[in-house]
């Protein structure tokens, strides 16, 4: 589960906080859209949740760990339980797609046999298994995005975060990805997806975290039972 209590975030060198007094809870095995206009703080919230930065103030608990007081080794272990699809893919250019995708399992110490089996399974599911030996630089945006999604999905993370994961995908692929998210949620994974794609949100209505100017636009509804829950999610 995710619990933020009066969390603020002020990056160094920036005069004002990019997130202010954010309080929200996302229970285990739930899906949330992360919505808001550009500059609202969606990326900053994702940076907090992916542990790229720590809150400047407030209390943040992630998967049962208090992040504010956690040691480096605790944060390292916590990161291995989180899958993230960044908007810029963040694939390592010198490595093959297979090595990029296999990385989270290798870091967890999985055997090479299991790693290969799972990596090829997820690559095949995302229809990029033929790209396993290619370098990311030689791929199209959509292919890179699918490789990044494969890396986030491998090993079934307990928390899956995605920043605009469908912006380079075709409609059919986007729908397929949403159904995968649904499967993960059914297996107990907490999923948060940041998007500007209103059509996608309409297609799969679910509860949302809406940010505006670094704070919750409408803090009350997101803690209530599914107001809009009528679609696949």
């Amino acid at each position: 589960m995710i619990r933020l209590l009066n969390v603020s975030m002020m990056p160094p060198g920036v005069g004002q906080p990019v997130l202010r007094n954010l309080t929200l809870t996302v229970p285990k095995g739930e899906f949330r859209w992360l919505l808001g206009p550009s500059g609202a703080g969606k990326s900053s919230l994702l940076r907090l949740l992916t542990l790229e930065t720590r809150p400047s103030a407030g209390q943040m608990d992630l998967l049962g760990v208090s992040v504010s007081q956690a040691s480096r080794s605790t944060l390292r272990n916590l990161r291995r339980r989180i899958g993230f699809v960044p908007q810029d893919y963040r694939l390592i250019g010198e490595w093959t797609v297979f090595d990029n995708v296999a990385l989270p399992l290798r870091l967890r110490g999985a055997s090479e046999r299991d790693t290969r089996r799972e990596a090829f399974a997820v690559l095949e599911w995302l229809d990029v298994v033929h790209l396993a030996d290619k370098r990311p630089g030689t791929l199209s945006g959509g292919e890179q995005q699918r490789a990044a999604i494969a890396r986030a999905l491998i090993g079934r993370p307990e928390l899956l975060l995605a920043d605009e994961p469908t912006n380079a995908l075709e409609d059919a692929q986007a729908r397929r990805l949403l159904s995968t998210f649904q499967e993960l949620v059914d297996m107990g994974t907490t999923v948060i997806v940041a998007t500007h794609n209103e059509a996608l949100v309409r297609e799969a209505p679910a509860r949302s975290i809406v940010l505006r100017d670094g704070t919750l636009a409408d803090p009350a509804p997101q803690d209530e039972p599914a107001l809009h829950r009528s679609g696949t999610l």
Partner: peptide
């Protein structure tokens, strides 16, 4: 730097 940060944020230990 970018590659090092990626593996760090995926949970690679400092010693690794």
């Amino acid at each position: 730097r970018k590659a090092v940060e990626i593996v760090h944020f995926l949970g690679a230990g400092d010693l690794t």
